[in-house]
Amino acid sequence: MPSVKRRSFLKTTVSMAAVSALSSVRLCAEEAAPISTVVVVHGKNISRMLEAGVAKLGGWDAFIKPGMKVVIKPNIAWNSAPAQGGNTHPELVKACVLAAEAKGAASISLPENTCHPEQETFKTSGIEAALKGTKAKLYRPAKGDYQKVGIPKGKILKSASVPKDILACGCLINMPVAKSHSGATLSLSMKNWMGSISNEDRRSWHRDGLHQCIADFSTFLKPSLVIIDATRILLTKGPQGPGEQAFPDELILSTDPVAADAYAATLFKEEPLNIGYIKSAQELGVGCGDLNKIKIERVEA
């Protein structure tokens, strides 16, 4: 065995250390360049805020083409009034539907597997009334409205039942309300898909590992645009409420659901990568959950 001289050992060690240090500096430099953009609109008038936010992301033309089928997924889970913060604000839903109509969408559907009886929920949430006079179709999917799909990139989730309208649409807008959640810590955009899938899926996700299933599903279903309603947020007693609230008066827009969720988590003073599904989704390459790599553009409207 050749003996290693003290000097040569030191030399190699030092040079290797130097190389690795340099390369890590270069890696850091790469990391510093933002890879996702989140637009945060602050204001009081929701429809003006929405327009300002979308304009920053290239305007509605970047998302909706004439004749396109549009699906909007608000959170309308609970039979509670808008002020309670359990559901997406009706004004936001309406503003988005009107924008889609103006852009000549062929159809606008809002399939929602509510947690409370749908007739009551659609009424109390104010969303049924907000959509009156528009061509938007708000409904709770029946058994026949679902289609089973494979989740090829899922770690543990291999299939899920998704409303056919969602699978067939040209533009998919995920429009959750930000709120605390008894199981998932926070309910943001990726968690919002649990209001689309079938009841049986919901149950099995909890059994199999809630956070990983949420992340797995996000490898499959990629929204064209994420708009998180953070005009008021439930700090406690989520997802249903009533609980303590805060009023950030913000809309959070992004094409990267992980980045949008990561920013929204900060409103609750949570470290994004401590939320299981944000971390897992980043690992699966769904998007970027690292605040250092997210470019946050603030807009006042």
Binding site: S182, G183, R203, H206, G209, L210, K237, P239, Q240, G276
Partner: peptide
């Protein structure tokens, strides 16, 4: 219970309870 027995995060009962009758 998958929370008590398997240590999975769940609390679906709490999320759905309209009377806030599930203590954590």
């Amino acid at each position: 219970c998958i929370a008590w027995e398997k240590g999975e995060v769940c609390m679906v009962c709490q999320a759905f309870c309209p009377y806030q009758a599930i203590i954590e």
